[in-house]
Amino acid sequence: MAAEGSSSIDALGQFQLHPALGRIGGSVNFTQSNLMMVVAGLLVLALLWAGMKPRAMVPGRLQAAAELGYETIMSMCTETIGPEGRKFFPLVFTLFFFILFGNLLGVFPYFFTFTSHIMVTLALTLLVFILVTGVALKEHGLHFFSYFLPKGIPVALAPLLVVIEVISYFSRIISLSVRLFANMMAGHVMLEVFGAFIIMLGGLGWLGYLPAALAFGLDTILIGFEILVASLQAYVFAILTCIYLHDAVHLH
C-alpha cells in the first residue's frame, strides 16, 4: 500500500494484477486476485464445515456464526423473493459470502481486493442478470416482455415508457457492478492516499509530525469505515439480486 516514490502518490498501483503462485501460476495467468478468491472461498467453506462439525444442539460461537449466516441469507431469500426463494438460496449465499469475504480480506494490509476490479464485479453482475432474465423467461415465457409496459398507462406514452423501462432494466448491469467496484476502489484509494500522506509528512521533520499523526488517525477511522462498506456492499449486492429475482418470478 506504500507509495512508490515520495514525490508523487501512486494510489492506483495497488490494483495492478500480478501472477501469483510463482511460475506455475504465471504460466496459467493465475493472479493474486484469484488467490484471494480462493482464500475467500476457503474461509467460507471453513466457517461452515468447521463451524457445523460439532453438530451441537446448543451451538458454540463458530457454529452460531455459521447458522446466523445461513438463516440470515435464507430469510433474505424467502422474504424478498417469496417461497420460491429457497431455490436461489445457494446462489445468493455464495454471492454474498464470496463478496463479503473478498471485501473484508481487502482491508488487511498487503491483501488484494478482488472486488475492486470492475471485470470481476461485472462478471458477477452478468451472472445475476442472465440468471434473472432466464428465470423470468422460463417462468412467464413471452409474457415476460409485458414487464417493460407498465399497466394502466396511456397508449400514447407507451413507446417512450417501454424505452425507459428497457434502459432501466439493462442499467441494472451497470448499477450493480459499478456500485460494488467503485465503493471498494474508492475506499482503497483513500486509504492509499492518506497512507502516503503519513510517509510524506513524516519525512518533513518535526513540522510534519502532527499532520502525519492526523493522517494516521484518519486512516484508522477509514479502516473502520471500510469494514462497514465491505459488509454493506456485500449485503446490497445480495439484496438487489433477491429483488431482481423477485421481479423475475412475480413480474412486478
Binding site: F30, S33, V38, G41, T94, F114, M119, L124, L127
Partner: peptide
C-alpha cells in the same frame, strides 16, 4: 491478467457454489 482473473474467478466461483 485482467481477463484471465475473470476466467479463474468464474472457475473458483463455480467450484465454491458447488461445494456450498
Amino acid at each position: 491478467l485482467t481477463v484471465s482473473q475473470v476466467v479463474w474467478g468464474a472457475i473458483i466461483f463455480v467450484v465454491l457454489y458447488l461445494l456450498l
